[in-house]
């Protein structure tokens, strides 16, 4: 029983994995072309950017906040870096490009963090506002043109593959960028589980006031959380530009809600204090697999939005009903305890 519970995971990761596995099996039976290396690799490739975004959103959601400006930060940082490199006519190499983008992203995140922490404002509304500001600022001050050419180092990265397998159904490529994403996942998981910073995020999500009284520097942590999200978003922005082999300022913005949906499906509580990297990755993969399989089964792509919405209602609805049943059970125990205490008092 204990082993079963551990398999289920603290945030129902096991259940999610089971759903994902079931979906893959069902899809493979329904359409044999689904179960190929090609499909697998392309799903992984399409999950690269959402996973990085989702890691950022996970961090914010654990602290009990929500960030809807990350897509604007991502495209701002990525696009500004590319346009700076192209206009200045020099190529700082991949580390340089990522460093510039992360710097831009972190400073935009700093704006979010300082406004939220300093004035303790609702995170959703602040980030809705900054989303408009960042997006508008990019168009007004950075530019609005589409770059089909990338700096040399980024263009080279776009075509480098980690694995290049020839299968019966053609060649399958696994993109090199899967590796840094995996490392990023491990890093975030390590930070969340094993460092004081990570534990303080859970503490803040559980109860902000309690965390403050326990001695956590709540405001400073909040600012660093939003800077971290900005930095992660910037990495995702650069990777998105690399993968699409062009810098289009219209990309990414508008897809925020899909990422938040995936993170919530992955077991993170929107009230904070709960969530894990494993669950988040599984949530993103589930959404990507469903997107991919709908097309293969022959459902028009127009149904995608509805499918994600229905998935979110089901996932969150089941969680809500389960949580309510849990809280009811706890109340019974509390009632029992208080009844016993009452009896003791009467007895003495």
């Amino acid at each position: 029983m204990a082993a079963l519970r551990r398999l289920r995971g603290s945030n129902n990761e096991g259940v999610l994995a089971l759903v994902l596995l079931g979906l893959i099996v069902a899809m493979s039976i329904a359409n044999p072309t689904f179960f190929t290396l090609n499909t697998g690799f392309s799903i992984l490739r399409s999950a690269i950017v959402p996973v990085i975004f989702a890691l950022g959103v996970l961090i914010v959601v654990i602290t009990g906040g929500i960030d809807v400006s990350f897509a604007a930060i991502a495209i701002f940082a990525g696009y500004a870096t590319v346009s700076f490199c192209l206009n200045a006519g020099f190529d700082p190499g991949l580390p340089g490009i990522f460093a510039i983008a992360i710097g831009v992203g972190a400073s935009l995140g700093f704006v979010n963090g300082i406004v939220i922490a300093q004035f303790s404002l609702p995170t959703l509304i602040v980030t809705l506002g900054t989303q408009g500001v960042f997006f508008g600022a990019m168009y007004t001050y950075v530019g609005a043109s589409y770059y089909a050419e990338l700096p040399g180092s980024m263009a080279a990265l776009a075509t480098s593959n980690l694995l290049d397998v020839t299968t019966s159904s053609g060649r399958a490529y696994l993109h090199l960028l899967v590796v840094p994403v995996l490392l990023l996942c491990l890093l975030v998981a390590w930070v969340l589980k094993r460092t004081m910073f990570g534990r303080s995020l859970y503490a803040m999500g559980g109860d902000l006031e309690a965390a403050r009284r326990a001695g956590f520097q709540v405001k400073r942590t909040q600012v660093s959380v939003y800077m971290l999200v900005g930095a992660l978003a910037a990495i995702a922005g650069v990777i998105h530009i690399v993968l699409s082999r062009s810098a289009n300022p219209r990309d990414l913005v508008g897809g925020e809600l899909d990422i938040i949906a995936a993170v919530v499906l992955g077991g993170a509580s929107i009230f904070g204090g709960r969530g894990s990297v494993v669950g988040t990755v599984l949530g993103v993969l589930l959404v990507q697999v469903i997107k991919n399989s709908l097309l293969l089964v022959g459902v028009p792509s127009a149904w995608l939005r509805t499918a994600v919405g229905v998935l979110l209602v089901l996932g969150v609805g089941i969680q809500a009903i389960a949580a309510r049943r849990d809280s009811r059970r706890m109340r019974v125990i509390e009632d029992l305890d208080s009844a016993q205490q009452h009896e003791q008092k009467v007895g003495s």
């Binding site: 949906a261 509805t306 994600v308 979110l312 969150v316 809500a320």
Partner: peptide
């Protein structure tokens, strides 16, 4: 059902919008 309003309406936004697109 007891879903948080922001998540419930986020989901229904996708659903209504998706149905409208279809």
């Amino acid at each position: 059902v007891g879903i948080t309003p922001i998540l419930a309406t986020l989901a229904t936004m996708q659903i209504y919008n998706g149905i409208a697109i279809v």
